[in-house]
Amino acid sequence: MTSKSKTPAQTPLLEVRNLQTGFKIDKQYYNAVEGVSFTIDRKQIVGIVGESGCGKSVMSLSIMHLLPKGIGKVRGGEILFEGTDIVGYNEKKMNNIRGKDISMIFQEPMTSLNPVFTIGFQIAEVLLNHQDITKSEARAKAVTLLKNVGIPRADQIVNEYPHQLSGGMRQRVMIAMAIACQPKLLIADEPTTALDVTVQAQILDLLKNIQEVNDMSIMLITHDLGVVAEICDVVLVMYAGKIVERATVEDLFEYPQHPYTQLLMEAIPKMEEEKERLATIEGLVPSVKDMPEVGCRFANRCPKAMPECMQITPQLEDTKGGHEVACLLYEESWPREERVGAR
């Protein structure tokens, strides 16, 4: 950290405290995100992993105030961006933040661009909304941005429409739009899932570069542990709307502690090892409508589950040097040999 950014460095860039996001089904709210707390520091890349339906995307949409109106709602908790709670912000205040301080890229580069406007127009729109510049300045800046994200013939592409570009190129355009105002936080929701591996490698490289150049933080949502290992600093593992493990990327892959994380890692076929069978996780993520009230939410699928797991809700606790896990096997009060056995 340089000296000039010392004061704001005291507060983390983003702090989420006990966030609860619910969806209305049959006139009743069910929580898809249940009491999630975490922080993202400046210049940090935080990965959020989990299976589909575990609440990763809902969490990011809650931060951006992009939940479907009338159906999804933040029902509790705080989202502190640079120390100020933005949960209660109205649309006008959020418009000042979105795109300028926090921006987002989505999984589907095919559908997140507007098909009837040129690429240049769409990038310039962001700039004109947040900065006091003229149209021609915005346009020139759009060309520079396109060049920065590695688009060839940027001065021609700027006049083209999204359908004229390939998937990887569209994702680059999305990134150009997202970083147009040099946001402090970029939320990337499965940014490479729809892309081929060679293009994925290009996009990951690009994200990493931009993160370093712009001193930006990234919240990367993905289901691909390979992508996480590649670029993240800190990883949060989510299951059924809760964080079950939080660790630095090295710690997580070296000593995965939660049984869910362990299974997730053994389930992927790896290049360097020969394995006849892969680990599986029996059963399914419980639906939001019938989440267990007490107890661990993974208990019914967990191979290490004990009778206590159904009665005691495990809390996220520090097991060693910042490695946090929510599992009874690691609770201090639990017999020592059991805990060793779990690792």
Binding site: T198, A201, Q202, D224, M265
Partner: peptide
């Protein structure tokens, strides 16, 4: 070679110098 090197390995210790292909198919 490029295809194999592009796969992100689920192991942070293996962060490698990848052959990143330029452009699209």
């Amino acid at each position: 070679q490029a295809l194999i090197s592009a796969i992100p390995e689920p192991d942070p210790k293996l962060r490698k110098e990848r052959i990143v292909l330029q452009g699209d198919v």
